[in-house]
Amino acid sequence: MTVQPVDRFAECIAPANWQAVDVISDLHLQAGEPETFEAWAAYLRRPAHERADALFILGDLFEVWVGDDVLSTHTSPSADHAFWRACAEALQAYSAHAPVYFMPGNRDFLLGPAGLDACGMQGLSDPTVLVFLDQRWLLSHGDALCLADTDYMRFRAQVREPAWQHRFLAQPLAQREAIARELRAQSEARKRSTGNDPSLWADVDTQAAKAWLRHAEAHTLIHGHTHRPATHDLGDGLQRVVLSDWELSARPARAEVLRLDAKGLHRRPLRP
């Protein structure tokens, strides 16, 4: 399978006064993982002198998102609905001090305009070039480049179709949540079949990543999705930087922020 061509890369041009930006992905926030939520909320509450000038979230902020109405429903609200609202409130509070940019992942691609507004976030296309500190950084969730996972790529193409999304969102909320639970169960079963080892999951295709970088006139691709934090030298002056996932209940716990500033790229682990 080949990667879908990108005719023109979207651009996010940083204001001249920005000195640093933070990039994160794959927090998979959910009510059943309170430790991860608390670490993330603590990160958002840091004092102003510790904050970057902007926060970029490259997908899978949420474990699942079945529609923006999870933030507004008051009919038999579940613990999950209250959790999503708590997430939105935390993001709104942070965005009052620094802009937050969100790129959809494979878990939360249904987060729409109403959800973005409720969270105080600005949407980003996947991929997007961040123009910052006289460099072009290519940002992506990363799943569109995992070409060897042909089953997923077919599924991805299906659910990203506007017609499919319209039909799905037209269903009652309870039905959408039931479908999401079934899809998550299937995903977990698939992970268990590989020993839940990310090193055995499909990875980003190197040639496709290099083609994107050349077309975007960038030297560094930053992405998540694979849960394999590392920096890969692609040759020809190109590199691929993989973000960490977050799971504070794991031992050892995982939570890391990637900061971009005048000194380059810095991984900043968060301690539980």
Rank of each mutant, 00 (worst) to 15 (best):
D26Q: 04
R160Y: 09
F37W: 11
L145P: 06
L55M: 10
T36C: 07
R176D: 08
A163E: 15
L243K: 07
V159G: 02
T194W: 01
S72F: 04
K191Q: 15
P47D: 08
G32T: 15
A20N: 10
R214N: 13
R136K: 11
R271P: 01
F9K: 11
M103G: 06
R45I: 00
A185I: 03
A209N: 06
P5M: 04
L248P: 09
R154D: 15
L111V: 10
A39D: 02
A163I: 10
H74S: 11
L183V: 01
H266Q: 15
G105N: 07
A82D: 13
D53I: 08
P99D: 03
D245V: 00
R136C: 07
Q186A: 12
V204A: 10
W137R: 13
D149I: 03
E177C: 08
H97R: 11
V241G: 00
A20H: 05
L147F: 03
E33D: 13
Q30V: 14
W137S: 10
R228N: 05
E38I: 12
Q122E: 14
A86M: 10
E63F: 00
R51K: 12
F132T: 03
L270V: 08
A253I: 01
T75A: 07
S244P: 07
A79V: 14
L55G: 03
H28E: 07
G105Y: 09
H97W: 00
H81A: 13
M1P: 14
D245A: 04
L110C: 08
G115L: 05
V3G: 13
T73A: 01
A90G: 03
S193A: 13
S249D: 14
A96L: 11
S249F: 00
V129E: 04
R136L: 06
Y94G: 00
S199C: 12
A39P: 00
E177A: 09
D22N: 09
E188M: 10
S193L: 09
A42S: 14
A250G: 02
R85S: 04
W201R: 13
E33P: 00
A54F: 04
R214E: 14
E11K: 12
E188L: 15
D261G: 02
D245T: 00
S72M: 08
T36R: 09
A157L: 10
